[in-house]
């Protein structure tokens, strides 16, 4: 564990806590894409299948349970909790996110590190996470203005993988044979997709007004 990875995990944890805070306290999911949340639930479900078979550390297992629990409860809230569901913007959240799942699965079957069931699904979760934010970014474009909590959520979610990139650079130089091209490229693509969001987000900070 290094400071970059810890900062990345804490940033990721903060993003799900901000979203849960927004949904649970003000009972609103305005501006949040249910489709992105569904994709993230699939990402964690397919990435953490090894939670029962390989124990890394208490921290690792604990965080996996937190991410699994939070992603599925956010989907449940947005789908079935009547007060929250009422604030869900169904008409605007129309990105065909299921069209992202199949290409990621095919790509994982073609490009992976080991051809085993767990490893292919793990690789699938990497590819899917790289594009999972697309429905949210499209929804952002359509709803123009978003509240601060949603803006913070997206900022933290984009930032965590950026910190992971620093972690991979650090590990590459400090650990022999630490080479994971698939993880690195997927993580880079994922972070680059946030580029224009980060641009407008920092403009907001400079301009001191809402995220336009």
């Amino acid at each position: 564990m290094n400071i970059f990875r810890l900062a990345g995990d804490m940033t990721h944890l903060a993003s799900v806590l901000v979203l849960l805070l927004k949904i649970h306290t003000i009972k609103s999911c305005a501006g949040v894409s249910l489709r992105t949340q569904e994709l993230y639930a699939i990402v964690f479900a397919t990435r953490y299948l090894d939670i029962f078979t390989s124990f890394v550390s208490v921290y690792n297992t604990f965080m996996k349970l937190v991410f699994l629990g939070s992603s599925f409860s956010i989907v449940w809230y947005m789908r079935y909790h009547k007060a929250v569901h009422r604030t869900y913007d169904r008409e605007q959240d129309t990105f065909r996110h299921w069209f992202l799942v199949l290409p990621c699965l095919v790509l994982a079957l073609l490009i992976h590190e080991k051809f085993t069931f767990l490893e292919v699904l793990w690789t699938f979760s990497l590819y899917l996470e790289a594009v999972a934010i697309l429905p949210q970014l499209v929804l952002l474009q359509r709803t123009r203005n978003i509240d601060n909590l949603t803006g913070q959520y997206i900022f933290l979610l984009g930032g965590y993988r950026g910190l992971y990139i620093l972690n991979w650079i650090y590990r590459y130089f400090t650990e022999p044979h630490f080479v994971h091209w698939i993880t690195w490229i997927a993580g880079l693509v994922q972070t680059l997709l946030y580029a224009d969001f980060f641009y407008y987000y920092f403009l907001r900070f400079i301009g001191g007004r809402g995220v336009e």
């Binding site: 995990d9 390989s54 965080m63 590190e113 490893e119 992971y164 044979h177 994971h180 091209w181």
Partner: peptide, 10 residues
């Protein structure tokens, strides 16, 4: 490819 040890990252 390096032999990927069990994934120790989240």
């Amino acid at each position: 490819w390096s032999s990927s040890q069990s994934h120790d990252e989240l």
